[in-house]
């Protein structure tokens, strides 16, 4: 396998006494799309929230084990720095309601108090919106509120906002589950394009989506990593019985 950019070693996650993830060891290859697949409640969202230290913002939540970004344990780094290097897009589009489209894209800089020259900011906004395939639709309304966009556009705006920080890894937590089929396929096309510049980890419970967009698939079930491998072989010749049963629709 290609060199991993981010990997975990015996990663377990807890909510209070409840263990949501059980000793996960996995390595994500650079500039690939890896799907984290599994039925609801299997711990897949918890898992990617551990990768940018968003898990710990829930009261009573804690993590054991290591997450290594280019061989540095992110649990020994400043959480705010980790989150700038590892961007995240959520299930429900969540642009900042008080900000314009323009300000939403550079929100990561503005909210962190990082000063940008006007020309720099313009450049980042255009580049990020182009990468998120939103530029042509919004270039004439950059100074309108982001919440006036459609759901699919809002989600691409959130992707642009994450890309503006130039992250090394982009975590997508069921980014299309709140969107209609047309908006979903646009996001899926976008994911294909984005892997040129950023490593993508995509959480989904949609088997079709995982097979369409991912290079690798990790199947999670009841807090455990059941199987991990190239999407094509995992989908055609799953090694584990549970993977096979999920793929043919016996549960989930």
């Amino acid at each position: 396998m290609e060199s991993p950019i981010i990997r975990t070693e015996n990663l377990s996650a807890y909510y209070g006494d409840f263990r949501a993830l059980n000793s996960i060891t996995i390595a994500f290859p650079q500039n690939k799309v890896t799907a984290v697949l599994g039925p609801s409640g299997c711990g897949k969202s918890t898992f990617i929230r551990c990768l940018n230290r968003m898990h710990e913002i829930v009261e009573g939540a804690r993590v054991e084990g290591k997450v290594l970004l280019r061989d540095r344990n992110i649990y020994e780094m400043e959480p705010t720095l980790v989150r700038r290097k590892i961007g995240m897009v959520f299930q429900k589009p969540n642009p900042f309601p008080t900000m314009t489209i323009y300000d939403n894209v550079i929100a990561g800089y503005k909210l962190n108090g990082i000063k940008l020259k006007k020309s720099q900011a313009d450049e980042i906004v255009e580049e990020s919106l182009r990468k998120a395939a939103l530029w042509d639709e919004v270039k004439d309304h950059l100074h309108k509120r982001g919440t006036f966009l459609s759901g699919g556009q809002q989600q691409r705006l959130c992707i642009a906002r994450a890309l503006a920080m130039r992250p090394e890894v982009l975590l997508l937590d069921e980014p299309t589950s709140a969107l209609d089929p047309v908006a979903t396929s646009r996001i899926e096309e976008l994911i294909e394009e984005l892997k040129e510049t950023v490593t993508i980890i995509l959480v989904t419970h949609n088997i079709g989506q995982a097979s369409r967009v991912s290079d690798f698939t990790a199947f999670f079930y009841l807090g455990e990593l059941v199987e991990f491998g190239p999407t094509q072989s995992l989908f055609t010749v799953p090694k584990d019985k549970r993977t096979e049963e999920y793929l043919i629709g016996k549960f989930g």
């Binding site: 968003m54 700038r84 969540n94 994450a162």
Partner: peptide, 10 residues
Amino acid sequence: IKEASLALGV
């Protein structure tokens, strides 16, 4: 909304 901000490293 809060998560969006925290996830940007704010």
